[in-house]
Design a protein around this nucleic acid. Structure first.
Lengths: 254, 254
DNA sequence: AGACTACCTGCAGAAACGTGCAACATCGCG
DNA sequence: CGCGATGTTGCACGTTTCTGCAGGTAGTCT
């Protein structure tokens, strides 16, 4: 295998998987991790990928539309994910929305947690495959490519049979006045359908979402049980608190 | 061999393989690596290829990308996938089973193919996300972790609404007497349910599956439209043919 | 806080590279 | 036919690049 060929392979893998683990690739290609890391360092220097601890994620939006957003802020999202994961109690049934933040939640679940996860995101399913005690229910339907989740009439219909304790909702905007918003009407409807199937809905908001407003409203703030965020000393957090919204995560300590 | 003739050969090799190793070509043509390198230097100067350490790659990145991906798949599966991909006609609706072989088929689909793919495999969905003109329908249900597909009552129920031209079926065993078999009863039932929803079912059998028998029968050979395989000069292939099974792929030439 | 993993740096062997040179064939011109 | 010019090929040499390993550092998980 040529070195240049290997670089292409790494980039192709980044495109298709949205991430890359140096150790795995080294084993797969039969060479040392050092070489893989060297390649990743160079690709990153050329702006073709972004290095993260353990491997790399795509960098160029043109190359990886969905996959890029998937790990945009690995570290900042981890805090939200860690707190949100605690909302899923052992033995309970939880609905996980699609998106980068909920994906981080799936990864943050304890390895031996026993529970049932319902999701409309194939990506979430992949992340949970190695959890032996997690039962996974996938909601089928037409796949909405932009964010790699199912939506549409069939998906809403399939969701009707579900009853869950919590729904962890991902949005692109959290605003004191405009509420919870996202960029696509179809997705917003799907999120609402899922929220109706859970006793408590918690919105996940990594720091860049706070104060942002997208085009389509998902739910008003009064309809959710709380917001998990890692923002702190933040005007938006304070205002949400003042309006009686239950703030969880790092913000709870502020 | 004329020098110009050799250059053409090098370019042809670059086109077909997506790469070229100077050392190999020198051995193959029976001349020194220096000559090959000299040729490559000139071709690169003319913009006809790109030099890399160890050899060269085509000037057009698209070709190299395709070749790289091709290398990742084991060769035996590649042949099967290539032939099977042709069974999905533009504009048609196809059901893709889960498994590594059907995953290879998804990757082998032309980038601009317009069609609808129905699948119960989240992995297949991921592989098809970058095909802009492929509509993806995901069948939901309980996720069977071992092979990362949905099955169970809900999945069978969801499959009922589907009608497709072809179903590309992955199995672990293809045997002249025992028919098509797989290792899990639940999966076998799901595969049967999918087969009922398609006009024609084709089984995909990379060479190691030929003659193998697993524990649970999926379908008898009489229920399928054909078997796509790359086996050839093979007792099992000959016997299947003798029994009237339509053999496609490399075996068709035998 | 401790164990663990991933990371970077420097180093050494191996492989590939480019350059200069000599040997050989081919061709054009007298 | 003779002779030089031109071009191609292989070899030798020094240089660059790649790769894996060792050692020390930093980041992560429990």
């Amino acid at each position: 295998m040529l070195a240049a060929e290997r670089r292409d392979l790494l980039l192709a893998r980044l495109r298709s998987d949205g991430k890359l683990v140096a150790k795995d690739l080294a084993a797969e290609l039969g060479l040392s991790e050092d070489s893989i890391r060297r390649d990743l360092r160079e690709l990153a220097a050329a702006g073709l990928c972004e290095r993260v601890y353990g491997g790399a994620v795509p960098a160029s939006p043109a190359l990886a539309d969905y996959a890029t957003r998937r790990d945009v802020e690995p570290t900042s999202k981890r805090g939200v994910a860690k707190h949100a994961a605690r909302l899923i109690r052992p033995g309970s049934i939880a609905i996980l929305d699609g998106g980068t933040t909920t994906l981080a939640v799936a990864r943050a679940l304890p390895r031996d947690l026993e529970c049932t996860v319902v999701t409309h995101s194939p990506t979430i399913v992949s992340a949970l495959l190695d959890r032996p005690r997690v039962e996974i229910i996938l909601i089928g339907g037409r796949v909405f490519k932009h964010s790699a989740v199912t939506c549409g009439a069939a998906a809403v219909e399939a969701a009707r049979g579900i009853s869950a304790e919590v729904f962890l909702l991902g949005v692109t905007g959290v605003h004191p006045i405009h509420g919870l918003t996202t960029g696509d009407a179809e997705e917003a409807a799907m999120k609402r359908a899922l929220a109706r199937r859970a006793a408590d809905t918690y919105a996940l908001a990594s720091v860049e979402k706070l104060g942002a407003v997208s085009r389509f409203e998902v739910l008003p703030l009064s309809d959710i049980a709380g917001i998990v965020t890692d923002g702190h000393d933040n005007d938006v957090v304070n205002e949400l608190s003042a309006r009686g919204v239950n703030m969880l995560g790092r913000a709870a300590r502020a």
